[in-house]
Simulated scan of single mutants.
Amino acid sequence: MNRTTDILKIKSVEQIPTLEQIGAIPRERKLKLVFERGVQNQRERIGQNLKNQLLDFQIGIHTIEPEINIAKLITDKEIEDNQDFFEQCAKDYRQLGEELIYKLVDKLELKLNKEFPLETFNQLIREDRGKGKIENWKYYVHGFHCGFDNVETGQYIEVPLVFGQEFGDLDPYFFSKYIKSTIKYKPLPIEIYEDYADGLKINEKMISLGKFEKISSNVGNHYGTVVSDRQKVEIKSYLDLEKMYNEQNKQNEKPKFNFWKFIGLKK
């Protein structure tokens, strides 16, 4: 469902809607404040004030155009009322991600590093095999993920590669895109308009409800969100990986292993 945008031209500060008026905007509508020349210099101050006051809204202060875009985010009550739906989506995401990763591993005859899958998939990029197709899915390796896009249904999922064999990390943006692209969920019981911002609120509320939980990754200071009701797997930290690789290298008389250099974050 697309949102309708209401445009309001602002010639003076007095024309800016009150917090109560903005708060009454339904989620299916957006408000765009277009500042005319006489008040353009106050746009950033006004936008920042709205951000501080309207915590349940996304306030976009345009960096070039003289405008502020205002959109109401999904509410805590809407998430709580639909918690069973979001929990099932998270379980489905995890199952599909795992299935696709292992299908790709089998097709390409990869030797998967189960402790650190990113090592295996980085090798695909170096071999110019980071993009391709498996069954009805196009795949492409990038960053800490392998993306899969179904050419028939349009379903889209990004599978994380830095949580060991845990393939259910729910990046807010990717989780929203997955839900919105999955045919069996339509019509959605609740609309998601702002993929990242709504997705972030969903994750945070589901964590507070005990349905989701935070996990650490193979990479320092990088964390994920997964469904709580799952078969848990061990995820080694980068310090654990460094220790493991260094013990192996010592036995084989190889140089000391540097994890950050290994994943391309340090030269």
Rank of each mutant, 00 (worst) to 15 (best):
Y140H: 10
D169S: 10
E99D: 13
L50T: 01
I70M: 04
A197C: 03
L96R: 07
Q48F: 09
P189K: 05
N69P: 02
F116M: 13
I263E: 05
I183N: 08
V39G: 01
G220Y: 10
H145P: 04
D169Y: 06
F144L: 15
K186W: 12
Q231S: 09
I7A: 00
Y93K: 03
G199H: 06
T120E: 08
E109M: 06
D169R: 04
K250V: 06
N221M: 12
G220W: 11
F174K: 09
I61Q: 12
R3E: 10
H62V: 06
N41P: 06
D84W: 10
G23S: 09
Q48T: 08
K72E: 08
E36K: 12
R230G: 03
D92P: 05
K236M: 13
K9H: 14
K131G: 01
Q231K: 09
L124D: 02
Y185M: 04
C89Y: 02
T225Q: 09
G38W: 15
N69A: 15
S228Y: 08
N203S: 05
Q95T: 11
G210Q: 05
M1A: 13
N69K: 13
E28V: 07
Q42N: 12
I74F: 04
T4M: 11
Y196W: 15
N52S: 11
Y223W: 15
V39T: 02
I215F: 00
D92W: 06
K201D: 03
F167L: 07
H62W: 15
K91D: 03
R45T: 12
H145G: 02
T63C: 08
K232Q: 10
L50R: 01
Y178H: 09
V226F: 00
Y102E: 08
N41R: 11
D149G: 00
R43E: 12
G168T: 06
S237E: 13
V141A: 01
Q155T: 07
F85L: 07
G47C: 09
E158K: 10
G164T: 03
F35N: 00
K32R: 15
P66A: 03
L54P: 06
Y139R: 09
Y238S: 13
K111A: 07
I202L: 11
Y245L: 15
R126V: 01
Q95N: 09
K32D: 13
D198M: 12
E44S: 04
I79H: 07
Q88C: 07
N136L: 14
L110K: 06
R3Y: 06
N221T: 05
V39M: 10
N2R: 10
I74M: 04
E78S: 08
L118R: 05
Q15P: 07
Q53W: 06
L104C: 03
V13H: 01
A71I: 06
K131V: 13
R45W: 14
E253F: 07
D56F: 04
L118Y: 01
K232P: 11
L55R: 03
Q88R: 14
M244K: 11
K256G: 01
V151W: 10
S216D: 13
Q83I: 11
L209A: 00
K266Q: 14
